[in-house]
Computed example of a mutant assay.
Amino acid sequence: MEENQALTTDPKFAELDEFIDNLPDKKGMLIGVLHKAQEIFGYLPAEVQHHIAQKLDIPESTVFGVVTFYSFFTMKPRGKYQIKVCLGTACYVKGGQKISDRVKEELGVTGDEPTPDGLFSVQEVRCLGACSMAPVMLIGERDFYGRLTPDKIPQIIESYRRKENKK
């Protein structure tokens, strides 16, 4: 009972409920609802998946199956700025692992966990589709960096920190 009370008082759940309640037809909207939930919460923990299953009147196993099938959904917290470092063949050969190592060193992380301030997380990916600019990384959905060297990483990361400090 306490869990349900916490859910109903959490403004993030209220925002998700409003989104779901305003859908003209809930049938077939699971992926859209999951995208919205991940936008609101930053990730899709078990309690969010449970809540979505109840609101859409579908089995939790269906929600879990979709979350685990599609790579753009995550059940682990991610940073506000998600850094994807390419380790595909061209990038790897041209130093992609050194780029990834330097990013993690600058951020003080070892895996894909978010930084303590919640600003950054790092993910090593197999291809970003820009082999001619190897090694490359993508921050968020649009900020693309190519022909990287480890020495460029501190300046790039610092530009995002400055952006946050201006807010």
Score class of each variant (00 low, 15 high):
residue 144 F to N: 00
residue 101 D to H: 13
residue 123 Q to S: 11
residue 76 K to F: 10
residue 118 G to S: 08
residue 150 P to F: 08
residue 69 F to M: 12
residue 146 G to F: 08
residue 73 F to Q: 07
residue 85 V to K: 02
residue 142 R to D: 15
residue 97 Q to H: 07
residue 53 A to F: 08
residue 112 D to M: 12
residue 68 T to D: 08
residue 128 L to E: 06
residue 88 G to E: 12
residue 105 E to T: 05
residue 135 P to K: 03
residue 134 A to W: 12
residue 150 P to E: 12
residue 138 L to H: 06
residue 131 C to I: 09
residue 79 G to E: 13
residue 77 P to Q: 13
residue 147 R to M: 15
residue 67 V to M: 06
residue 108 G to D: 07
residue 152 K to Q: 14
residue 114 P to L: 10
residue 81 Y to L: 05
residue 136 V to N: 13
residue 130 A to T: 04
residue 131 C to F: 10
residue 103 V to A: 00
residue 71 S to Y: 03
residue 132 S to Y: 14
residue 89 T to M: 08
residue 60 E to M: 14
residue 108 G to P: 05
residue 71 S to Q: 13
residue 117 D to K: 14
residue 64 F to V: 11
residue 154 P to Q: 13
residue 148 L to N: 00
residue 67 V to G: 01
residue 116 P to S: 11
residue 87 L to A: 07
residue 86 C to I: 10
residue 97 Q to P: 01
residue 136 V to Y: 01
residue 57 D to R: 12
residue 122 V to F: 04
residue 144 F to A: 07
residue 65 G to M: 11
residue 130 A to I: 01
residue 114 P to R: 02
residue 133 M to S: 06
residue 139 I to S: 00
residue 115 T to A: 09
residue 98 K to E: 12
residue 153 I to M: 05
residue 66 V to F: 08
residue 86 C to M: 12
residue 124 E to M: 06
residue 125 V to C: 03
residue 150 P to L: 11
residue 99 I to H: 03
residue 108 G to E: 08
residue 153 I to W: 01
residue 136 V to G: 07
residue 122 V to L: 07
residue 54 Q to Y: 11
residue 142 R to Y: 15
residue 151 D to I: 02
residue 74 T to Y: 00
residue 64 F to T: 15
residue 84 K to D: 00
residue 78 R to F: 00
residue 87 L to E: 11
residue 115 T to M: 12
residue 131 C to V: 09
residue 141 E to H: 14
residue 85 V to I: 08
residue 64 F to K: 13
residue 113 E to S: 02
residue 52 I to E: 06
residue 56 L to V: 07
residue 112 D to A: 14
residue 121 S to E: 05
residue 108 G to L: 04
residue 102 R to M: 14
residue 139 I to F: 04
residue 64 F to D: 12
residue 148 L to E: 07
residue 65 G to D: 13
residue 89 T to C: 13
residue 135 P to W: 08
residue 120 F to M: 01
residue 125 V to M: 03
residue 155 Q to G: 04
residue 137 M to L: 15
residue 83 I to E: 05
residue 73 F to K: 00
residue 55 K to T: 03
residue 71 S to W: 00
residue 107 L to A: 05
residue 63 V to S: 05
residue 70 Y to Q: 09
residue 75 M to H: 05
residue 148 L to M: 04
residue 137 M to G: 01
residue 121 S to I: 00
residue 97 Q to N: 04
residue 57 D to C: 06
residue 102 R to G: 01
residue 104 K to C: 04
residue 61 S to Q: 15
residue 119 L to N: 10
residue 78 R to A: 03
residue 66 V to R: 11
residue 58 I to P: 14
residue 80 K to D: 04
residue 85 V to E: 02
residue 109 V to A: 03
residue 103 V to E: 00
residue 153 I to D: 07
residue 121 S to D: 02
residue 149 T to V: 10
residue 106 E to N: 09
residue 140 G to S: 13
residue 54 Q to A: 14
residue 99 I to V: 14
residue 109 V to R: 01
residue 145 Y to D: 03
residue 103 V to D: 01
residue 68 T to K: 09
residue 97 Q to V: 07
residue 52 I to C: 09
residue 132 S to Q: 15
residue 90 A to R: 05
residue 145 Y to T: 02
residue 107 L to G: 00
residue 63 V to R: 04
residue 70 Y to V: 08
residue 144 F to P: 01
residue 121 S to Q: 06
